[in-house]
Design a protein around this nucleic acid. Structure first.
Lengths: 181, 181
DNA sequence: CTATATCGGAACAACCCTGTTGCGTTCCGG
DNA sequence: CCGGAACGCAACAGGGTTGTTCCGATATAG
């Protein structure tokens, strides 16, 4: 799978999905351009394999409090965001969602939806346990928690995120609010 | 400036900044390809004019409470995010920051920094007035407020945002927190 | 009215990417 | 040992983009 690594390297270096040429991929992978055509009928098919390569399963959270689980899940999210190759790939994918509809569909289906469901589950568990107010919108709470991280991913300046520190700061802020007592 | 509009239209339709060709822009603008070369030495120069075209000055907020100013500023941000042409342009720009360094620099300098400073000012005013806790990081609070909106912009599904409703919900949530009493 | 500037149309060579084909080579299993 | 499978190399035609140039039309200003 040298081609998959080549795509990740090149995209991480600033290439666009539609702008990437098979000759570039072949050269960077040290592989004949012919072999790429043999294995993948189209560039989309190759990109689908790239997407699979960066999609690792999520761990299951079951700590004593929902608050701790939220912090842990945010830390995981930050960790994955810090992976420059995967992050660049996702950013490039989102920027050209229109040109690669199937890729965009599977991205939502296999990456964002599972993460979202995990977070929803934790939040609902916190509500049931009396940790979290029940008069707030679960989806909006989730957006509030992951929004800052995803915004960093989109802006490309996710480098100075710290999994432990930032996840704790975000959780504290969202739980306690910023209103003065 | 038909060329600027053409770029916005095409990018909004899914085109990439590096993928956009001058022939496409010329055709869509109903302008001779020759004229484009005459006015803009390079594609970067044209894109800089496009960036200027979507950069409207920010209104000044000076309401009775910082909370209201924050809601108003978020509403403005959502409004601008809802502009499909400007939003697509910014998303495309961020996706190819590496290929257009000057464009990326001026985007930060002329768009994100001013907005950020406005928000910082409002938050600090709220702190001085005793509305907002003083033991929180101003930058982090700002990220918490605008993160969800920018994440929507990056994901491309900003359509179902409502300036009034969402800005109020976000402000309430961030002020009050989600912890059960 | 006229002269200058601006524009559109067309053509040009040079380059890159795409699919595809053909052929020689290398590697691995039976 | 041998044969098939996978690979690399080269070439091809076709299409697209880039700068640039030349020329004719048009409009604008003096």
């Amino acid at each position: 799978m040298a081609a998959v690594d080549a795509v990740l390297d090149l995209v991480s270096a600033g290439a666009t999905l539609s702008g990437l040429s098979l000759v570039m991929i072949a050269e960077h992978a040290g592989v004949s351009r012919n072999s790429l055509y043999r294995r993948w009928k189209t560039k989309d098919a190759l990109y689908l394999d790239v997407l699979d390569a960066i999609n690792k399963p999520l761990p299951v959270f079951d700590g004593p409090t929902a608050r701790q689980d939220i912090t842990a899940q945010l830390a995981i999210l930050i960790l994955r965001t810090l992976d420059a190759r995967a992050g660049s790939m996702l950013r490039a994918l989102l920027a050209e969602a229109g040109a690669f509809p199937e890729l965009h569909r599977r991205y939502f289906e296999e990456i964002v939806t599972p993460r979202r469901e995990v977070m929803y589950g934790i939040i609902r568990r916190g509500m049931a346990a009396g940790e979290i107010r029940t008069d707030v919108d679960v989806a909006l709470v989730n957006e509030l928690l992951v929004g800052p991280i995803l915004a960093r991913l989109g802006s490309g300046n996710a480098d100075n995120l710290d999994p432990d520190k930032t996840s704790r700061q975000l959780t504290d802020l969202v739980f306690e609010g910023i209103a003065a007592p």
